[in-house]
Design a protein around this nucleic acid. Structure first.
Lengths: 331, 331
DNA sequence: CACAGTATTGCAATGCTGTGCAATCCAGTT
DNA sequence: AACTGGATTGCACAGCATTGCAATACTGTG
């Protein structure tokens, strides 16, 4: 309980060198003789010395910390993304600070303030959008910002998005090829840009083929919403024979309700598509045709951008690959 | 790209006070007049000042950082626990650093070293066990350690575990009451203490009732393992009529394989129980009887212990509540 | 052996904040 | 008016590591 970390000073004394020598031993590319280095490392090892990154960050004006601002951490897609990002960050010598914004809604701003306090080199935002003023404050402080799947026209941050509309078009083609004419779109009420892009992309593609789409929206983006949406859409006079769900979680709920409460056989009587390719989509009970979020590519893109000095204010659109499974006929 | 954070010095100049006054304004319980406070806050707001937690941590010898050392972040149970812990940490004014140890295997030690470098006040370990020497180093530095679900006899850390054996006993009772006699246990090869405790607890309870248990182990703890285990156990001459799966993920895989490949009806021909109560266990396709990991209680216990000064070296056993659903007959 | 050139090393300043200590201010009291 | 006690305030040091600069050690060459 003494809380005594050993400092470079002590290592220096034990090794019989100056404090600078210790510092240089632990700094990439600094000039130290092999002999000094050996003595320092030995002393450090025996005392249990570790460079104090707080002090280093203070001095270098670069903490090595990257803030991950996330809501709904327990969700399959989010947690997969977190996994990928932390891995990439660690590979490039940085470390992730995780901020959970599930509580209130001003909390993204709170999170960004926290990021500033710890002098994070960057923040990666996977939940709501930050207030423009605070985002500017971050950028002005030299902190970089990455927005994932939340389209925004602010200048400065890197914005990574998927080709949602393109994906929606492909789903439509698949549905039509399977002989479906009675289309539906199952969405949540969250209204995030990527969800809305899937919805409007789907509707637009349908319109080109003279087809109509019944849209239903309900609650948060999750399994339960899928069940409720199934209740709504499958009790319509013209029952849909194909439904594109805005996310896999919604699709799972939808499929379960369709089978158990309406005894509908998938894909014979109803074709279903999802989005995200969460692990559960591949489970035998669902075997859902869906679009894979390129989580590793997203993570690589974000972290690479953080390491580069130039090219602020960029916009990247990544491709979501169709993963064909048995929830759509034909293929 | 200027990377210029505003410092207390600048705020002091703008407000026409000393730097100490600024510091005191942002320190709980320090003595500042209302007028000075007002001037400081105003200047701080207009300049966009935020206390530098790196410097504060350096000075106070208390960074406010808690390291979460986790493997398999994308897994439902793990991510739910991360969510609960980050929430609790934030409520008590701390912040989580997330370290992903999925890569190599010495990585828990690497992670702890990282924790020391950032002078984390504590580390919470949800993955492998740390080398004893390094754990000692952490404790000696005044860093606290929490081990969740990984029993270990080291002195110093808080160890939080569940009553796995007790749970196993209750499952057995339920199986017997449902008329099952041909018992099986489906485990992974991971061999973590909690998994093994469930296994041996189940076997011990069965033995008391003169029943035998067929044990199978395979691969990592996940859905795929469940499928393989089903292949093995359901092709035995004496096919089991009840199986206790070490985790819900295994149970989901097991159920899917049982139904689709063996056309077994659950719970009529086979009773299934799981452990963790992940979200998917409540999905209609599974509706799995299982034990709820008290994630919020775990998180509260851990964070509370971190805030208290005394009582190092403690051992806490929490209760996993049975969640009764339809995968076991009767109820 | 002298000298140029390079590799090491130590000094001291720097980054930012918290806090003990002494000085100062203010209000209230006799 | 002098004095007392408490609240504020500023000074200066501490905490830890990085790094420019100048001094020193070392290597090789003519």
């Amino acid at each position: 309980m003494s809380k005594v970390f050993v400092s470079a000073q002590e290592v220096a004394e034990r090794a019989g060198v100056s404090r600078s020598a210790v510092s240089r031993t632990f700094t990439q590319g600094a000039s130290v003789s092999a002999e000094t280095r050996r003595k320092v490392l030995e002393a450090a090892e025996s005392l249990g010395y570790h460079v104090n990154h707080l002090a280093r960050g203070l001095m270098r004006n670069e903490s090595g910390i990257v803030c991950l601002i996330v809501s709904e951490i327990g969700t399959p897609y989010r947690s997969a993304l977190i996994r990928a990002i932390t891995q990439q960050l660690q590979l490039s010598g940085k470390i992730a600070m995780l901020i959970n914004t599930d509580r209130s809604d001003g909390s993204v701003d709170l999170a960004l303030r926290q990021a500033i306090r710890y002098r994070a080199d960057a923040s990666i935002i996977l939940s709501g959008l930050p207030d423009k003023r605070i985002a500017q404050l971050c950028l002005k402080s030299g902190q970089r910002l990455v927005l994932i799947n939340r389209d925004d026209d602010q200048e400065g941050p890197l914005r990574i998005n998927l080709d949602d509309a393109e994906a929606a078009r492909r789903v439509l083609t698949a549905f039509v090829r399977a002989g479906c004419r009675n289309l539906a779109f199952a969405n949540s009420e969250a209204g995030t840009p990527s969800l809305m892009a899937r919805e409007s992309g789907f509707i637009a593609a349908a319109m080109e083929m003279q087809l109509e789409v019944t849209v239903a929206r309900y609650g948060h983006t999750g399994y339960e919403a899928g069940r409720v949406l199934a209740q709504r859409l499958l009790t319509l006079p013209h029952r849909p024979d194909a439904v594109f769900c805005a996310t896999d979680l919604i699709a799972c709920g939808f499929m379960d309700a369709a089978r158990q409460q309406f005894s509908i056989s998938i894909p014979d009587q109803l074709c279903v598509a999802g989005f995200d390719d969460i692990e559960q989509a591949s489970w035998a009970s669902y075997d859902l045709t869906t679009f894979a979020q390129p989580v590793d590519e997203i993570a690589r893109t974000a972290v690479m951008w953080l390491s580069q000095g130039q090219d602020l204010n960029e916009r990247v659109k990544l491709h979501a690959e169709l993963v064909w499974r048995s929830s759509i006929r034909g293929g």
